[in-house]
């Protein structure tokens, strides 16, 4: 069985899956940047006490699952999402979904994802893909970060759907419920809602660890890493920061470029001139994140390593925080 489904590669897994699952009902209008922006995907968060892979817990995007949920909500589309404790029931539900002609979004862990290069397999459980058919024992998989479609045997798929650890997917499947056609007016409203959501998320979130304040906070922390952790561990921490920022699925610059693309596309629906200028600010932010990454690489490859180099690294983040704060303030001031 193979559903009528067209694979499309994207930068980020969840916004790619969202865009693909909504392609039919939106006539392809919900592009990846639109899904990312309407879903208010842009974020920053550094949780000091938690460790991931023995390094700092840093995220450049919002909590897994939220992009799909918010995008559907903003467009007035019901979300169907199921979790399972039984592997048999999880597979039965997936098959049922396919039999009804509905491609299914799945949350999976990447550690045992067989088609991923080994270097990328960490215990990361918030990867997303779409199952769109089954031939013999092989499920047909549209993984948004891959150029072409792939396959997983039923055992392989079960194993990644029931990966364990933080954010365990629990066999989760999701897809949009009954959808009529999505109109341009709906998209326009959803864009505005997504921007407002993202403004709140980056500017008004309480505490030091998240939003634009979180970026500056991390910058200040980094300046102390050399003394506190020693050069080698501090280097490993910076490498982890760069991985979260640039690794597969970010579209580059810690998702800032995708967001800049979203604002440009948003202009086509809202005709707010400001969006084009603000988009440039996010491009600048992405570029600055990248400059910081190059500097960080100098430290973790041992080319740099003085306290002045760490100060410079911290200052880059403080500068980014400033830039993004101004960009979000400008978005906040738009009269819709």
């Amino acid at each position: 069985m193979k559903l009528d489904f067209e694979h499309q590669q994207s930068a980020h897994c969840e916004s790619g899956v969202t865009s693909s699952l909504l392609r039919k009902s939106s006539g392809g209008k919900i592009t990846e940047p639109l899904a990312f922006g309407i879903g208010a995907g842009l974020f920053f968060c550094y949780i000091p006490l938690i460790k991931i892979n023995n390094g700092p817990a840093i995220a450049f995007r919002t909590f897994p699952g939220l992009i799909f949920k918010r995008t559907c909500n903003a467009l007035g589309i019901p979300v169907v999402r199921q979790k399972f404790s039984s592997k048999e029931k999880a597979e039965a539900a997936l098959m049922q979904c396919l039999e009804h002609g509905q491609p299914a979004g799945c949350q999976v862990g990447v550690y045992y994802l067989s088609y991923f290069p080994r270097e990328y397999r960490f215990h990361f459980n918030a990867h997303n893909l779409i199952v769109f058919g089954k031939e013999d024992d092989q499920y047909l998989i549209s993984d948004p970060v891959m150029e072409t479609v792939t396959q997983l045997s039923s055992y392989e798929l079960e194993r990644v759907r029931f990966a364990k650890g933080a954010l365990a997917p629990k066999g989760q499947i999701y897809y949009p419920g009954d959808v009529a056609t999505i109109s341009d007016e709906q998209i326009r409203k959803a864009i505005i809602k997504g921007i407002k959501n993202n403004v709140n998320q980056m500017l008004r979130i309480p505490g030091n660890f998240a939003g634009v304040k979180g970026i500056a906070y991390t910058g200040k922390k980094i300046k102390r890493w050399r003394d506190k952790l020693g050069l080698q561990k501090a280097g490993s921490y910076l490498a982890q920061l760069v991985r979260m920022q640039e690794e597969i699925g970010t579209g580059g610059g810690g998702f800032r470029y995708i967001y800049a693309a979203f604002l440009q596309e948003g202009f086509a629906y809202t005709h707010q001139e400001e969006l084009l200028d603000i988009s440039k600010l996010f491009t600048e932010a992405g570029d600055l994140w990248r400059t910081a990454a190059v500097h960080a690489a100098g430290i973790y490859k041992g080319r740099l390593g003085s306290q002045a180099d760490f100060d410079q690294m911290g200052d880059y983040l403080i500068q980014v925080a400033d830039l993004e704060k101004n960009a979000f303030l400008a978005l906040k001031q738009i009269k819709w």
Partner: peptide, 9 residues
């Protein structure tokens, strides 16, 4: 830059 970050990990 990110290949090196992955190498470090």
């Amino acid at each position: 830059v990110k290949k090196e970050a992955l190498d470090v990990a």
